[in-house]
Amino acid sequence: MFKWLRGLRAAPAIPDAAWQATLTRYPFLAERPAADVQRLRALAADFLRDKEFHGAHGFAITDEVALAVAAQAVLPVLHLPGGLDWYGDFVGIVVHSSEVVARRKTMDETGVVHEYDEVVAGEAMDRGPVMLSWQDVLASSLTAAEGYNVVIHEFAHKIDMRDGAADGCPTLPPGFGGHASARDAHAAWRAVIQPAFDVFREQTIVAERFGGEPPWLDPYGADSISEFFAVACEAYFVNRTRFGEEFPPLLALFDAFFTPPTR
């Protein structure tokens, strides 16, 4: 599994055949500008050099698996200052063959603890590893029209959690949006994403409870603003056109963050 990359200070280029196979399987990568695809390839090689893949319950980590994850994981940080530094809080990536049943525990407003099982396709742990279902990673090759991508979802969580809080607002660069202070920049970000989340959540509730038309994005995004951010990032990167039609203010906001102007 790309063992020839491990431990090298400078990552060699990914073999042409492996790279072309990845672009063919995930067309939303190949459809980007040529300069982006070239940078994506180099960044994916760095990712493979720095991260460690583990197969759960006997699942085999092949070159195909590792490269598929790497190529999609680096897409959100392709133009971010610092690049892979955004993923610097972890090394391990655990891949299961399919979805996983995770045990959850929550406390309600009255202090009562509730335990339940949740089926998950992926999970990003704060300052810990990322877990992915290979079945769902593969599905990302076919679900761009729905804006679905489990790899981007989980790595968007990593970007969101970089400052320690999964609140739907990543760490913003100095001067973001023309704001002098980080507090003002954060407030401006919230002023765009919060109304979008509120409308989406209302649409999801109406669809689920009263049979209304379901929103385009994965309804899982209605769980919290951090989940909404991750779900929105999926759609932004794999189906920009439809995302822009559904969320024009978010498109402008994400463009300003994920593709900052060259200084």
Rank of each mutant, 00 (worst) to 15 (best):
F2N: 11
K3Y: 11
K3A: 13
L8D: 11
A11W: 01
P12H: 02
P12A: 07
A17T: 12
A18Q: 14
A30P: 05
A30M: 03
E31N: 13
E31L: 08
A34F: 01
Q38L: 09
Q38H: 10
R39C: 06
A42W: 00
D46E: 15
D50Q: 13
K51H: 12
K51D: 11
A56F: 08
G58Y: 00
A60S: 11
T62C: 06
T62N: 08
V65F: 00
A66D: 09
A68L: 02
L78H: 03
G83I: 08
L84E: 12
L84Q: 10
D85R: 09
W86S: 10
Y87A: 06
F90G: 06
I93T: 01
R104H: 12
R104P: 03
T106C: 05
G111M: 04
V112K: 08
E115V: 10
E115Q: 15
E115N: 13
E118A: 14
E118N: 11
E118R: 12
A121K: 01
A121G: 15
E123D: 13
A124K: 01
A124S: 15
M125L: 12
R127I: 01
P129K: 02
S133P: 03
S133K: 00
W134V: 00
D136P: 00
D136W: 06
A144P: 11
E146H: 02
E146G: 13
E146Q: 15
E154M: 04
D160T: 08
M161D: 12
A166S: 14
G177N: 07
G177M: 01
A185T: 07
A187Q: 13
V199C: 05
E202M: 10
I205N: 07
V206N: 04
W216I: 06
A222W: 03
S224R: 05
S224T: 12
I225A: 00
S226F: 04
F229S: 01
F229L: 04
V231M: 00
V231P: 01
E234G: 05
Y236K: 05
F237Y: 04
N239W: 04
T241L: 10
T241D: 15
E246I: 14
P249D: 13
L251Q: 09
A252H: 11
F257C: 07
T259W: 05
P260H: 05
T262D: 12
